[in-house]
Design a binder for these strands. Structure first.
Lengths: 344, 344
DNA sequence: TCGATTTTGTCTCTCATAAAACAAAGCCTT
DNA sequence: AAGGCTTTGTTTTATGAGAGACAAAATCGA
């Protein structure tokens, strides 16, 4: 079989390679007839322009880079899912790089940028790097950040409205009449963790509730750290009545801890979380948490990235979008909700 | 800033582009001195050979394609995770395409194959397609299948040993003395489902236990279908004593159903699953299930794919590997296991 | 049928690199 | 200093396509 390149198609169609190229590139200088004829012949011999060659020539690859701290866990999975769906809608491929601990997000970003492998990057770098804005500024490719950095920057970012979600969460606890609120924070260098913590303190301040520093412990968003954080809180002589875990995984750790200590949720201790992962629905009582539109986060990021790529928006203009959240009422806060309906 | 290409480096190093190329391509015809000098200069101006151009020239892209039916759900996530880890170990990128229902796996495969975007493909296509072997045979790129097809084929595949796992699972139920076993199958056109069903029937036959067709219902691996499958079984006048759900998600559906019907697991009805997803650990009692080494599946697939890519193994030789599984004993089968230890 | 307008072909350049053939140094050994 | 080996340069070809300039047809309207 002869190799399938543009010349082959040209020969078969009895036209020049220029015409074939025109057929494949939405040129106005070609008759509809010939265009469809050429495309049909290309289809027959199963010819498609080589993405590599095309990329070299046009500087476009139809590929979006995705940089994410980890690839496992429901949160990250959902993001990738959202990105993938949206990318597919626009016939883009996605190339995924998880930094996974050892690797450095920033390095991966630079790699992607300089490689010419991608037209743009969606990056989730919740760790606070100061180098990121520089790299983005220097790069010729657009970058959309997800749940990263705080407002003060020149980049493009789309995030969950952590502050609003936390406020709703805490105010709900206050409505229950709890006055002694504890929190299991996320890791200190994490943006989401930071904002959720801020939401917690500001809301309490707003309602004139005193914040007891002993009731605030730091976890790392893992179930394990939630468990140990809870255990630490429970050794205090004066214990909080309700605990806000900065994410659902840590709230799960609280459940595990309560099971071990034979404490009943919410009677002995109330708990709320953040994220609304699938798991939270299975806990008994169902976890009261904040629904974060995670897939939407991914899809919005891709949408805006494509606008940047196609020059529909000014790349030098900062853009920030915060996706609003909603409170999901379970039984863990003290509300009385029927728990026997099946979960799908 | 001048553009960073091979010429630029050559000029700065005072050598020809041929020498620069030699420096970057492990040529023997270059002095170590000059090589390191060139690489250092390249590093300084932050030059890296363009993957696109290199790909055009060498027909290698350092990228592995991953085709997977869906990108969400713990099972798929773990596979991607395993693939990603291994790929990163070898400095390969991965480009992910989920067929996600609408899309046709096979089409995506063809696309990848002909695009020159990838050096090879890891594909999970649990739906039984007869076209797949043809496409693989025609293609110039190697393909490793994951959990796909049955043994009778010429492809390369790596799979979970569904049969062995199921056998262990069912025999454990038999040891408990259950004689009336029911099963919630997976979808009919799915390889894993098929093999697990076969494991169920063969094991019962081997032990001379009669199979009651009424106790076998079909689900689609979703929690919901497990729920409804369970409900159907529970409407029978003669009910099974134990139910083997073909995956953990459907077993979860059984738990939900039992909750609604106020049946106690395992006293009123025993349940086992397959996969050992994280969730199964949180159920109470913990689900008895079969641990499938899912991440290993991904990493083994990549390892073998790389061997194929680098010609270390004969691409025309069929290769099949089955990864063995292990039974995880929870309380759902009737075993008495302490449940109060926390889960991480 | 003329002129205008489409539509196509030709040709060259460009993208960034690899690889091979061959020539020309440079260096070492004897 | 000659022969041989190592290293480097030069040049060409190839990869597969896009894009622009320009010329040559083909088609259309009047």
């Amino acid at each position: 079989m002869t190799k399938k390149n543009i010349h082959e198609v040209a020969k078969l169609a009895g036209v020049s390679i220029a015409t074939v190229s025109r057929a494949f590139n939405n040129s106005k200088f070609i008759k509809d007839d010939t265009k469809t004829r050429i495309l049909k012949i290309a289809e027959e011999i199963d010819y498609k322009p080589s993405p590599l060659a095309r990329g070299l020539s046009t500087n476009m690859t139809d590929t979006i880079g995705v940089i994410i701290p980890d690839i496992s866990g429901e949160f990250f999975t959902d993001i990738i899912h959202g990105i993938d769906e949206e990318a597919h809608r626009w016939n883009k491929f996605i190339i995924v790089a998880s930094s996974h601990g050892q690797r450095n997000d920033v390095e991966t970003l630079i790699d992607f940028m300089s490689s010419g492998r991608v037209d743009g990057v969606v990056m989730m770098a919740p760790h606070i790097h100061k180098e990121v804005p520089e790299i983005i500024a220097k790069s010729k490719r657009p970058v959309v950040l997800i749940n990263s950095l705080n407002e003060i920057d020149e980049a493009v970012s789309i995030s969950i409205d952590n502050f609003q979600g936390t406020t709703a969460n805490i105010e709900h606890l206050l409505e229950h009449g709890y006055k002694k609120l504890g929190m299991i924070k996320g890791p200190g260098d994490n943006c989401d963790a930071e904002e959720r913590y801020l939401g917690f303190t500001k809301t309490l301040e707003k309602h004139g509730i005193e914040i007891n520093p002993n009731w605030i412990v730091e976890g790392d968003f893992s179930t394990k750290s939630g468990y140990y954080g809870f255990m630490r809180l429970m050794t205090l002589t004066e214990k909080p009545e309700a605990i806000f875990a900065a994410n659902d995984m840590m709230a799960l750790g609280v459940y595990e801890g309560a099971k071990v200590l034979k404490l009943k949720i919410p009677d002995d201790i109330a708990v709320t979380g953040f994220d609304d992962i699938y798991l939270s629905r299975l806990l008994s009582p169902r976890l009261t948490t904040v629904h974060a539109p995670i897939e939407e986060l991914g899809s919005k990021a891709v949408k805006y990235l494509l606008k940047l790529i196609y020059g529909e928006v000014n790349p030098y203009e900062a853009y920030h979008e915060k996706l609003s959240t909603g409170l999901i009422i379970g039984g863990s806060c003290g509300c009385n909700v029927p728990s026997s309906s099946p979960v799908f």
